[in-house]
């Protein structure tokens, strides 16, 4: 296993001279799931894009560093709400698209193994159009795993799925991403309480930790402690953080 680092963000974020959020001091722990919640437009996805080194509308004044000092963006992979599968490629070609885009020879054996782990072996030659939403998101997960990077940034990857499929995907992701440093942006308190080792609430004024039960994720959906935590988190979010 490649070393999964802890990532720290310190600073503030301005758009056209106006403060969007911060100053924040937030850390994403090594090898664990950190769930990021906050109202729409507060800049959750921006944080994820900043870590990935993607373009954003404003400026981050501060620093984003890993505890081992190595660059972060090149060790991070990304999974979004939209599966971002290429409709003209079959499932396996979509899973190996990273290697293709780097002009490298794909490792099909590994791709087959990962496709098997996400349970799509019977659909390897199918185009995304022939797959259900849940299957497409599993394919996207396989593509993310194929990159084999120690940091994984997830931007509401399960939010468009129906409740049953979403729970299945959460189980699968928790199992397959074990040991990686994961940041999950989500709107769903239940998802955050199921999956998170830590929960961070982002607001204009900063990033604050939310206390979770002592149990380890992934927590069962009917775990009473988790349900209590989820209910109080929801109440907190409704009160406007």
């Amino acid at each position: 296993m490649i070393h999964a680092p802890t990532i720290t963000l310190k600073g503030r974020y301005d758009v056209d001279g106006h403060r969007l959020f911060g100053p924040i001091d937030m850390s994403i722990s090594a090898g664990e799931w950190t769930c990021l919640l906050g109202r729409s437009g507060v800049g959750k996805s921006t944080i994820l894009r900043l870590i990935l080194g993607l373009e954003t509308a404003g400026d981050f004044i501060g620093k984003i560093v890993s505890d081992d000092g190595y660059p972060i963006a090149k060790r991070a992979s990304y999974m979004a709400q939209s599966d971002l599968l290429l409709p003209w490629l079959n499932l396996r070609e979509n899973v190996v698209v990273g290697a293709r885009l780097r002009g490298a020879e794909p490792d099909f054996d590994q791709a087959n193994a990962l496709i098997d782990r996400v349970g799509l072996s019977d659909h390897i030659k199918k185009k995304p159009g022939a797959l259900s939403g849940g299957m497409r998101q599993r394919a996207a997960l396989a593509r993310t795993l194929m990159e084999n990077r120690p940091i994984v940034l997830l931007d509401e990857p399960f939010s468009a799925l129906d409740a049953g499929t979403r729970a299945d995907m959460q189980d699968l992701a928790a199992e397959l991403l074990v040991g990686k440093t994961v940041l999950l942006v989500t709107h769903d308190p239940a998802e955050a309480c199921r999956l998170g080792h830590q929960i961070t609430l982002l607001s204009e004024d900063g990033a604050n930790a939310w206390d979770l039960p002592d149990t380890m994720p992934i927590r069962q959906p009917d775990d009473p402690e988790m349900l209590r935590s989820q209910a109080s988190l929801l109440a907190h979010l409704r009160a406007g953080l």
Binding site: L52, K74, A80, L84, V97, L101, R102, E147
Partner: peptide, 10 residues
């Protein structure tokens, strides 16, 4: 394009 960039695409 974002995805491609995170993958280090040329």
């Amino acid at each position: 394009l974002d995805l491609a960039k995170t993958m280090g695409a040329s």
